[in-house]
């Protein structure tokens, strides 16, 4: 790995996105609009107070997953990845370069979504707002790294879109939004322990409802970060210089 080449790749990806203002607008605004919609739907009940934190995990995670997996798939299909793999660019340079670029977008997206949820939709936060932002950002980066990893197994855009129901939806269903995880059947509860999104949701729910649970939140965020790191490593391992 060569930091100069990693950063050159990050800069290149960001320059590409800069040429596409519509993507930037969708990326930055859509999660907030969806959260706003949910707040509006539940304006006459307290439901938003309980699911609001989970939504902060959900929408950025899904959107970053989709955008990252499709972008890297495009790179595979256009031949640019094959060209890069014949050049002195390390596999880690490629994956980490992408992670940094999309991670930066994830930070911006999460900041806006958190700000919107808290100040516009009136989501009450018992814990530290910076802790909430940290969780949201790490969670969006998780979506990015999962997207990078998943795109290795997709040959077409069609397949990549199907990875959403396959890899993302189970995490959403088992994440504790519909039913708290400890009330699920034991088997499902154990499975959900092994799904990264469960820990993101757990961390967000804790930070919004409990004032003095920084330790718990940091532990959950740590687990999410480890998953993200694992996806980066798996993404680099599954990147092949030689293909059939």
């Amino acid at each position: 790995m060569n930091p100069r080449l990693t950063l050159a790749t990050t800069a290149r990806v960001l320059t590409q996105i800069r040429h596409d203002p519509r993507t930037i607008a969708l990326l930055v605004l859509v999660p907030s609009l969806l959260i706003g919609l949910m707040a509006w739907i539940f304006v006459n009940s307290t439901v938003f107070e309980s699911i609001g934190p989970a939504l902060l995990a959900l929408f950025p995670f899904i959107i970053m997953f989709l955008i990252t997996s499709i972008t890297t798939l495009r790179e595979r299909r256009s031949g640019t990845l094959e060209r890069l793999m014949t050049m002195p660019l390390g596999k880690f340079d490629f994956i980490v370069g992408y992670t940094l670029a999309f991670g930066l977008l994830a930070i911006i997206q999460s900041l806006i979504a958190v700000g919107y949820a808290v100040w516009v939709c009136g989501l009450t936060i018992s814990g530290n707002i910076w802790l909430l932002i940290l969780v949201a950002v790490v969670n969006a980066i998780l979506g990015t790294t999962l997207g990078l990893f998943a795109s290795a197994f997709a040959a077409t855009e069609f397949q990549v879109v199907q990875f959403m129901p396959a890899l993302v939806f189970p995490q959403v269903l088992l994440g504790g939004i519909f039913l708290p995880r400890d009330q699920m059947p034991d088997v499902l509860h154990s499975i959900s322990d092994w799904l990264p999104l469960s820990h993101s949701i757990e961390a967000l729910q804790t930070v919004t409802t409990e004032a003095a649970a920084t330790g718990t939140v940091l532990r959950e965020v740590g687990i999410v970060a480890l998953w993200a790191l694992a996806f980066v490593i798996l993404g680099s391992i599954t990147l092949r210089r030689k293909t059939a």
Partner: peptide, 17 residues
Amino acid sequence: RRRIGYVTQAPSVYEDL
């Protein structure tokens, strides 16, 4: 990797750059 220049059949460049 530094000593070979390779052009694939598809124009492998970034169209959004």
